[in-house]
Write a protein that binds this DNA or RNA. Structure first.
Length: 951
DNA sequence: ACGATCACG
DNA sequence: GACGTACGTGATCGTA
């Protein structure tokens, strides 16, 4: 048997502590020594050491530090690292503690005078790779990205990758490519051109990361780029390249890692075993890391646990871990209890200016708006609250006392003046604005002419961490009250306690200032506290990638789409409503006649009794509510068996649905100010990461039947414009083919084949209308997690026959069965599924003893990575779309709607030709560069004078 | 407030 | 031996 692969982790201790210092709160230990960064470092080592025995975890580990003093690079260039500022004074005493912490874990700690940590890491990494080991460099230093590689070793490929523990991100070839636009072997050349101000590597003045990447990618190397300079067309860039040649060559030497250092310690001595608890306990105790100490004692996720408490086990190492993660969370510095009396009401411009100044100094401020409506497109701004620290919060009333000119109004800052004062703060790049559901506030403030940025959103952070995590008894929502309850143990004042409910409800503008301040300032306070709890978890739990790269950038994009809205033709809808009403009345009469009595056709209860008791049709099945089922499958069966009433009811239902849900409701949804319909998208509505749409839902407008499609004809562009609809074609099946690595399907997609026809050929040997339809059903069944009974009922065959088809499918596409098996194993062990972009969905019931519950989770878990990856891809496309169009000068293309695999745009007719290829490209390439798919993404685009015509 | 039904991907 | 059968949503209606 081959020996298990060795995996060396090299921890770049020095760079970690700098970053930890800035990211973590300034804790001090019982002796008064600052230990915030050390605490961060300790938890990181803890996690790494506890990963021993995990797949891809370390078998060997060493910490590499910078020795103090000068390195050989200073002999080459005396200015090297010369302008680096002194480290902050409360960081200095923490440097030696890094060594103490490392020793406490009984881990090797290596530093060599005259060598930098990077050079030692490079040498050790290459040496281990030569011996066929995998290597993970724990650092985020971009210089080290030069080392990322994979070579053929004695027993298979040996790779060097990186792990950024702050962002909890693996860095591998795609990440390097994304950052530098070139492979690792050329990273040094890019760095040499761009320089590094922190290390005082000169680079070439005036060339930054973008230009450097572009030059190296174009010419293939630094030397080639420099050589090509004299031939370039006259430009600033050309001059700089020629004049800066010397600087660039020197920089290249400085950034090149020394890979042939003398090694002070052989690799074998880095072998990682269970951590002896004694020295570690002493260290934790000395510095007052009591929560870690407790975990060490209880063995909960402890690096010492493996031998001390549990004998090594061969079976699933992660079993039963599902969902227990929250208990493993880092303790946070205590926050004071919520104190409503501490909140300020800001009633003068001077006081407001002071809060704004303090917010600027704090650089992070939680913001909340109070309005008159939940609909951001109708809401009037009533006040704004700010929070700078726990209990340090205020409320700024702007429109209390209502709009009645003569009413008695409380003293408050003039609304226009206050907003003018707030605007620079809210738009300041250097001040982070934290919201709970920021999309709402963004829209309210955008309507006041304020373009808030940059923002953070605790609701979205919560979703990216905990989607699906709700269990019985504990809600899984991401609303503020729920989050506050869950993470802060605090129940905020309820809106209805301030404004009342039902008929007696008052507008927030009528709430007395004292109550308004308590409520509003508390919301900002809670938001800030939630941010402090949730934000660090992103990095710890691997949520940074999806939050920073997908969901956070999407917030302003979706907000903008909501504000754009879409025009609907009211007259057309009204006409449809009327036609439907006539037809519904006629059908109702016929149904009553067929039934021999009047009854409420819309009542499934009454209908069931008429059909099965009075008229005596057979096959009535009662559900658990004791009521006959009368859904479409039942009525269709009855209609097929010659029951005229069933067909009439089906028609009646179709038209009632269309009228009440669409033609009537859409007219009512037209915004009187804009004349357009503005849906609201939820970024946290669907567990898989999809958006959902409400008020009205524009993601379920009819399309499948001709009669329903008439409603789509009422969605229209402004005069002179057209609607453009761009759809991903079969995206989920394509992703399944990629993720399950099914060659036959991948080839079919690569050749642009009809995928259902192809499936029919594989399964039934021939393509007919019937076999293709069956194949299509089976393809979807696979995506949704199949059962013989479910498939049987859809195909109207016996379960045995359905099972035979499933077997055939798995035989023809063996990757699918393996994918399903591996996905479920992983979800059972970890508790969550993951998309290609790292989005997690939790399945707390995956190991349930209740079979139905468990099987339901299993089906959802099979589907979630596929549906979720598709959602990630279109989200990335959306975030890039308007910038890409703008870059081509297309500023008048509006992105209006998203329907899961479709984007709808409105644009002047004469822009269609220019916009189409850009939209197609952005969508088709949306996975890149983070993920390279082995199937192409097809995009179908159409245009027309209605949404229907655009398809 | 909840279940049944049906609109969408 | 019983369970309850395709994934993910939201709106509307009737009924409790």
């Amino acid at each position: 048997m081959a020996e298990p692969k060795q995996h060396l982790y090299l921890v770049d201790g020095s760079s970690y502590i700098f970053r930890a210092y800035h990211r973590l709160p300034p804790l001090t230990d019982p002796q008064g020594t600052p230990v915030g960064a050390v605490y961060g470092y300790t938890t990181m080592l803890w996690k790494l050491a506890a990963d021993l025995d995990e797949a891809d975890g370390p078998t060997h580990l060493a910490v590499i530090l910078d020795a103090s003093g000068v390195s050989f690079r200073n002999e080459i260039y005396d200015q090297y690292k010369a302008n680096r500022p002194e480290p902050p004074e409360d960081l200095v005493p923490q440097f030696p503690l890094i060594r103490d912490a490392t020793r406490a874990f009984s881990l090797p700690c290596i530093e060599v005078e005259g060598l930098e940590a990077d050079d030692l890491i490079a040498t050790y990494a290459r040496e281990a790779q030569r011996q066929g080991w995998d290597v993970t460099i724990v650092s985020s230093d971009k210089d080290l990205m030069q080392l990322i590689s994979e070579v053929d070793g004695p027993n298979g490929p040996a790779r060097i990758d990186m792990l950024d523990t702050m962002k909890n991100q693996r860095i591998w070839l795609p990440e390097v490519e994304e950052k530098f636009g070139v492979g690792p072997e050329l990273v040094g050349d890019v760095l040499a051109l761009m320089g590094d101000s922190v290390d005082n590597v000169p680079g070439i003045f005036g060339i930054g990361p973008k230009t450097a990447s572009k030059l190296i990618a174009e010419h293939g190397s630094l030397t080639a780029a420099l050589d090509a300079a004299p031939e370039m067309k006259p430009s600033k860039l050309k001059e700089r390249l020629i004049e800066g040649r010397g600087d660039a060559e020197l920089s290249k030497i400085l950034v090149t890692l020394k890979e042939d250092c003398d090694l002070p310690q052989p690799l074998e001595e880095m072998k990682l075993g269970p951590v002896p608890p004694g020295p570690l306990a002493a260290f934790l105790e000395k510095h007052g890391f009591t929560s870690l100490l407790k975990r060490l004692e209880t063995g909960n996720g402890s690096p010492a646990r493996k031998t001390d408490l549990n004998p090594p086990k061969a079976d699933k190492p992660g079993a039963n871990r599902a969902g227990d993660d929250s208990a493993n969370r880092q303790p946070l510095p205590e926050m004071p209890r919520i104190d409503h009396a501490a909140y300020a009401t800001v009633q003068t411009l001077d006081a407001l200016e002071e809060w704004i100044a303090r917010a600027r100094a704090a650089q992070v401020v939680a913001v909340d708006t109070e309005t008159t409506s939940l609909d951001a497109m109708q809401a009037d701004l009533v006040g704004v609250s700010l929070a700078l620290a726990p209990n340090d919060a205020c409320y700024i009333p702007l429109a209390h006392g209502g709009n009645d000119m003569f009413a008695q109004k409380p003293e408050q800052v003039d609304k226009a003046a206050a907003l003018a004062a707030l605007k620079p703060l809210l738009e300041d790049d250097a001040v982070l604005k934290v919201f709970q559901n920021g999309k709402y506030d963004l829209n309210v403030l955008a309507r006041e002419g304020i373009a808030v940025a940059p923002i953070e959103d605790t609701m979205v952070i919560s979703f990216d961490l905990d989607a699906g995590r709700g269990e019985d008894g504990m809600g899984g929502g991401h609303g503020m009250d729920e989050l506050s309850q869950r993470h802060l143990g605090h129940t905020p004042i309820a809106f209805k306690d301030v404004c009342g409910t039902g008929k007696k409800a008052i507008s927030f503008a009528e709430v007395p200032l004292e109550d308004a301040t308590r409520y509003a300032a508390e919301d900002a306070d809670v938001t800030l506290r939630l941010y402090r709890v949730l934000k660090p978890r992103l990095a710890e739990e691997g949520g940074t990638r999806i939050y920073e790269r997908v969901d956070r950038p999407l917030i302003p994009v979706v907000a903008r789409m909501e504000r754009e809205g879409i025009r609907v033709d009211r007259a057309r809808l009204a006409k449809l409503s009327e036609e439907f009403a006539v037809e519904i009345g006629r059908l109702e009469g016929e149904v009553h006649a067929a039934a021999g009595q009047e009854f409420t056709v819309g009542s499934p209860k009454q209908l069931g009794e008429i059909l099965f008791d009075k008229l005596g049709y057979k096959g009535g099945k009662k559900g658990k509510s004791g009521q006959y089922s009368t859904d479409v499958s039942v009525l269709e069966r009855l209609a097929g068996e010659g029951a005229p009433i069933a067909k009439l009811v089906l028609e009646w239902r179709q038209l009632s649905k269309l009228k009440s849900t669409y033609t009537d409701a859409l007219q009512a949804a037209i915004n009187p100010d804009t004349g357009r319909v503005h849906t609201s998208y939820s970024l946290v509505g669907a567990q898989t990461g999809r958006l959902s749409s409400t008020d009205p839902n524009l993601q379920n407008i009819p399309v499948r039947t001709p009669i329903g499609r008439q409603i789509r004809e009422a969605f229209v562009p402004e005069p002179g414009n057209v609607l453009l609809a761009a759809d991903y074609s079969q995206i989920e099946l394509r992703l399944a083919a990629h993720m399950a690595d099914v060659d036959t399907l991948k080839q079919a997609f690569a050749h642009g084949e009809d995928i259902h026809a192809r499936t029919a050929t594989e399964m039934f040997g021939e393509v007919t209308r019937d076999t293709r339809a069956r194949a299509k059903t089976i393809n979807f069944a696979i995506l949704y997690g199949i059962s013989r009974w479910g498939l049987a009922s859809r195909l109207e065959v016996e379960p045995d026959e359905a099972q035979a088809m499933i077997d055939t499918y798995f035989q023809r596409f063996p990757g699918i069965q393996r994918y399903i098996h591996e996905t479920l194993e992983s979800v059972r062990a970890k508790g969550y599924s993951e998309t290609l972009f790292g989005r997690k969905t939790w399945f707390p019931r995956i190991n349930s003893k209740n079979q139905a519950e468990r099987q339901g989770s299993e089906r959802a878990a099979i589907n979630a990575p596929i549906q979720g990856t598709s959602a990630d891809i279109i989200k990335r496309a959306m975030a890039r779309m308007l910038p890409a169009l703008a870059e081509a000068g297309l500023h008048d293309v509006r992105m209006l709607l998203q329907v899961h695999d479709e984007l709808v745009f409105e644009l002047p007719e004469e822009r269609v030709e220019a916009a189409t290829p850009i939209i197609r490209q952005v969508m088709a390439e949306a996975a890149l560069p983070a993920v390279e798919l082995s199937v192409p993404l097809g995009v179908d685009i159409g245009t027309g004078l209605s949404w229907d015509a655009a398809h």
